[in-house]
Design a binder for these strands. Sequence first.
DNA 1: TCCGGCTTGGGAAATTTGCCCGAGCTGCCA
DNA 2: TGGCAGCTCGGGCAAATTTCCCAAGCCGGA
Lengths: 217, 217
Amino acid sequence: MTDVAATGISVLLVDDHPIVRQGYRRVLESQGDLHVVAEADNAADAYGAFKTHDPDVVVMDISMPGASGLEAIRNIRARSPRARVLVFTMHNEAVLVKAAFSAGASGFVTKSSAPSAVVNAIRGVARGERAMSDDIAHILAEDSLSPTGSALDQLGEREIEILRQFAGGATTEQIATHLNLSMKTVQNYHYLIKTKTGARTDAQLVRLAAACGLTRI
Amino acid sequence: MTDVAATGISVLLVDDHPIVRQGYRRVLESQGDLHVVAEADNAADAYGAFKTHDPDVVVMDISMPGASGLEAIRNIRARSPRARVLVFTMHNEAVLVKAAFSAGASGFVTKSSAPSAVVNAIRGVARGERAMSDDIAHILAEDSLSPTGSALDQLGEREIEILRQFAGGATTEQIATHLNLSMKTVQNYHYLIKTKTGARTDAQLVRLAAACGLTRI
DNA sequence: TCCGGCTTGGGAAATTTGCCCGAGCTGCCA
DNA sequence: TGGCAGCTCGGGCAAATTTCCCAAGCCGGA
């Protein structure tokens, strides 16, 4: 971690699209105080680059092939709790946002944001603040009005198991048979899981399960 | 349409993410011969900007909210058959590629391509050539060899679009609003897609869409 | 011109969801 | 020892969705 005030902010860019990365790099470096010291196009390389370069801020798109971006965040934070990770993605689902923060992200900015909002978020997390774009704040605010918990870690063992089978493609009947439950119970769990995670559709549930490594796609 | 050899290539950039657009602009303009004369963040504005600026090449991400990017391609080509549209997206599913070319695209490049491949593709379509990135050529080649084809080959353009939004986590109501359809129609498509693909649950549908590159998790 | 396929939706029965409830069990804490 | 809290399991029932079947308009090809 370098002295921010003296040398600017060092940034590790993680995105699986090369030209997108190069575009970001140019936008960020035109700011003067932001320096892209490394790039990575997957979660494993991101962790390696973090160890090598120890950047002030990791700017990461969490939707990457292979290992989950959330897993990468956890790895980075486990190694270096002072690490600042700014999630930068096109997704804006409340479950993903909460999952990212509970994985240890310092900020969450969507690609719909104005460039100035993105660079300000980078400066914010470099100062140790929490940062998020307006649309994300709006989504979280609305979500918080319905008093349902945060992400996957609030689920019980049984709920996790049912979510895993569901996200894996099993029907309600298959889950009920396999776990020796009534279909009604499985349906109730299904509903409970959705309310607990804040997922509004089954698809969001599958995406959440995949993002948390519960199922492979 | 300007004289390419004398003044370089004028480009209209269409992508719904502002910072992504700004990144592309900087990458392209650093090439010397490429000039971004306008930007748009949706299909309707793209058509308007095309009419106003008459660029040599339109570089377009077809996955945008609202009207389909394919529709924008058709509009542009209907107005000006000599128009060159280079599709530039993260999706690499054969059905999408074929749909784009049959809508009138001159090229198809994925965001996984190297920046040099992208700028070369722009120069290629400006010369009137057909251009595609290596991964796209590979996918089309494999697709043409397999008798059964991808599971998504049997889906029409509208079905693909609805599946993409559904797998991305959108509710029936959101899809209906985005595409200006009744919820009933969206539900019917949902059912039709399931029967066509053989998916028995929504989760299987999401997994299929992810496996085919229609959505990222 | 006719056929076939895509797109858009209506209708109606079957099924699931959303949300309420209670009951049994376990562990924990005073 | 009692009591509370949380998980597990399911019933009930209105509301919503899914599942099919059908039809009409449009468009491109034979």
